[in-house]
Design a protein around this nucleic acid. Structure first.
Lengths: 332, 332
DNA sequence: CCTCGTTTGGAATACGTATGCATTTCTATG
DNA sequence: CATAGAAATGCATACGTATTCCAAACGAGG
């Protein structure tokens, strides 16, 4: 059923190696035969076998992208530019959507079917990076990393972003401030919390335990956290959320609870997903360049594969910017 | 760098074929040597080469899923159950996210690196199915198909769903009704429109051209369509949207235009994405079982690959159900 | 003690492509 | 016209795994 280069060779009246060379524009094959081979390949609808090529060249021109939950709107916005940039660099993207990092490691990453890996949902306790290191598989972190030195990573200035928000909230007069941060085993969660806490501390404001929630970067985290925060002795007047998806969960919970935003509650997100600008939300948030974050990761990985990256590791950090919309207000 | 079955064989003191057999639990290898080989493989962290196996067996146990725009929240909700079901069936999912169907065909689907394909974003004018047929590559349509007979498809009763909505709107007293349908080259768009029109016609209600918009199943389609519909001589009192994402665009546009939903305008979607239930939307819509739709597609494809499917084609149709929430109201 | 059948393992090879090396076919130059 | 050199193509082989076929070893029965 499948058509091989041998079939093309037979039809064109040349040898198989000549077909291989002709189709790859090897200068060693004459223009005449090149044309002849091309026509034969066209006629037979020949497509080179990926497996054969891989086995022969020991290179797949394919890069794996690990994402645990595509349902989270954040990731599609990462995956799309990643795909385009990788394609531009001559690689194909293979999206691996596993529930957990670990299941992925053994079977799929190390079977020589990938030239490199982008880790988009790394946790600080994952054993995956070590496994990849051991097998010499090039990889980069995207958005999250493990916080170790010597890593290759394209990340955001999370700490700076957290600081931005704290400064704004303090400037608006808020004192009873709550935080719904990301999971403690993610650097995005930790760094945003750190920056936020440090800037609050600079202003002499504390963040008591009953005004702090940590959880996955999901809608439900925000949706369920708000009622809990409101039950505290002194309800917060402002909430900083680990990302936009969590903030949107909070906004919906606020609506369910009959709270008006921003009059009764200021809500601030992180990421500035397209969704954040929707009229129903008009979410005040922290922006960073998600496209550039992804493109940078792609380029860094390819540099690493080519051996052109700094052997000591490279950590590319993108700046953040405060985006005022309609979910924050001065405390009255 | 890479460890092969030959390395394992050397360490275990057996031949390479024995390694292959031992790790695949071939009864022809004794329990003792099997254990010996296993330990050697373990010690070396051996992972079989995908390319080598593919070349030898001519089977990849890998299925491609074609989706054009992951940014559209509909698709992640299809991809996740698809991934799980395929995994359950012993296949790996490879997600192909190309802008257009055509770019995909030549290079990626026919290079013998896939055992089958799921088409989730087919258009009626796509040449891709014909190409796959020509090369004997098994495939199924998911959600959308091309409307041809002899196809293998897992779809929704779109026409019935369209009828449901029309009946409800008529029953609520609406007469000036608008439709924002999907693209004309998709069966989902066409069938929902057809069912809607037929049921309206049954009630003696027409659908004039200035109350009809067609466009991609995207947020922007709804967001931009509403202002246009409102400019008509007689503004509609109800809008049926081709899917939830479009409806959400309409809801945001309504908010921007100062229209109250459902008092000023009834809005109805299709799909019942999790997002539709969010408090900010509470979208009245048409539900179908997206998980089952995906699982069914996976099972159908695997049956087709195994040669167990009906050679005349199979078209599995899931029922729809009306989901009343808060975006519809009786005309007063 | 010989023979036959069974069990277990190895040798050889196929899968499809790419590439180093040998070979042929030109062209140009003496 | 002979020959060196360049250009073009073919031959042989490697890549890693799975499988077909064959050989060895072993035990049982006569």
């Amino acid at each position: 059923m499948a058509i091989t280069s041998h079939d093309v060779a037979r039809l064109a009246g040349v040898s198989q190696p000549t077909v291989s060379r002709a189709l790859r524009d090897d200068p060693r094959v004459s223009v005449a035969t090149r044309e002849k081979v091309r026509r034969a390949a066209q006629a037979l609808n020949y497509v080179p076998s990926e497996a054969g090529r891989t086995l022969s060249t020991r290179s797949t021109r394919r890069i794996g992208v690990i994402v645990t939950d595509l349902t989270n709107p954040f990731y599609p916005h990462v995956v799309a530019p990643l795909h385009d940039e990788l394609q531009r660099l001559g690689y194909r993207m293979m999206l691996l959507t596993e529930r957990s990092d670990e299941a992925v490691a053994e079977e799929k990453l190390l079977d020589q079917s990938l030239d490199g890996v982008v880790l988009a949902t790394a946790t600080t306790d994952s054993r995956l990076p070590a496994q990849l290191d051991r097998r010499g598989m090039p990889y980069v972190f995207l958005n999250r990393d493990t916080g170790g030195s010597g890593d290759y990573a394209s990340v955001v200035d999370n700490e700076g972003g957290g600081r931005l928000v704290a400064d704004v909230l303090v400037g608006l007069g808020h004192r009873r401030i709550a935080g719904i941060f990301g999971a403690a085993n993610t650097t995005t969660g930790r760094e945003r919390e750190l920056g936020f806490r440090l800037a609050l501390a600079d202003a002499g404001i504390g963040l008591p335990a009953d005004r702090v929630v940590r959880g996955a970067f999901e809608y439900d985290t925000g949706y369920r956290a708000l009622p809990a925060l409101l039950e505290a002795a002194e309800a917060p007047t402002a909430v900083f959320c680990g990302n936009d998806v969590v903030a949107i969960g909070v906004l919906n919970a606020a609506l369910a609870a009959g709270l008006r935003v921003p009059d009764d509650l200021t809500v601030i997100g992180f990421d500035d997903l397209p969704m954040a600008a929707w009229e129903v939300f008009r979410l005040t948030t922290v922006r960073h360049d998600l496209r550039e974050l992804s493109r940078q990761a792609a380029r860094l990985l390819v540099r690493r594969i080519d051996g052109d990256a700094d052997p000591a590791g490279e950590r590319l950090v993108l700046p953040t910017e405060f985006v005022p919309r309609a979910t924050h207000a001065r405390l009255h």
